[in-house]
């Protein structure tokens, strides 16, 4: 298994669920450690199941704080390009926060991590058509939210 590839995928998953980079890193590492200590013959998509449960536990402990790296490096004044990308990131994180949980899940899995529909079916317990429908609804809702927040990419 390509640990590096899955590390990035699980990190992105946690990041979009929690909204904090540091917490996402911690949860990513915790996910891998739990996976390795369980039956290692489980498929890689089991990583998502572990990550999802950890994110839910983390969410219940603390309300997610939408921060980015500039929040932890207050002494540095970001340049104009960095500021713009921070704003974009905050806009998207805000939009994600407004989406229903189920739609956010498939949006991250399908659009961010490029997971196959088959894997998403197993992870979510939905049929293939239900996954396609939910992906479509999630994408349309995100586009609508980004449009409202005048996101220009």
């Amino acid at each position: 298994m390509d640990i590096e590839l899955f590390y990035d995928k699980i990190f992105r998953y946690c990041y979009y669920r929690i909204g904090d980079k540091t917490t996402a890193e911690d949860l990513t590492q915790e996910t891998f450690l739990r996976f390795l200590n369980s039956d290692s013959r489980m498929p890689e998509r089991y990583l998502y199941t572990i990550a999802k449960n950890l994110c839910i536990d983390e969410y219940r402990k603390t309300r997610p704080i939408l921060t980015d790296e500039a929040g932890s490096e207050a002494d540095e004044i970001p340049g104009p390009d960095e500021t713009e990308s921070m704003v974009d990131r905050m806009t998207i994180l805000n939009a994600m926060e407004q989406m229903p949980e189920e739609e956010r899940e498939v949006l991250i899995l399908r659009y961010v991590n490029d997971e196959s529909v088959s894997d998403i079916c197993v992870l979510t317990g939905l049929s293939r058509f239900a996954v396609y429908r939910r992906c479509k609804e999630a994408a349309n809702r995100m586009k609508e939210l980004l449009g409202k927040e005048n996101y220009e990419g």
Binding site: Y7, D8, F11, R12, Y15, Y16, K21, A24, E25, T28, D68, E69, S85, D88, R89, I92, L93, L107, Y111, V112, A139, M142, K143, L146, Y151, G153
Partner: peptide, 16 residues
């Protein structure tokens, strides 16, 4: 959809 995909991927922070 392709643009949305790119936006979401670009917006995601990268792990240290």
């Amino acid at each position: 959809d392709k643009e949305l995909k790119m936006i979401l991927k670009d917006a995601c922070d990268v792990p240290d």
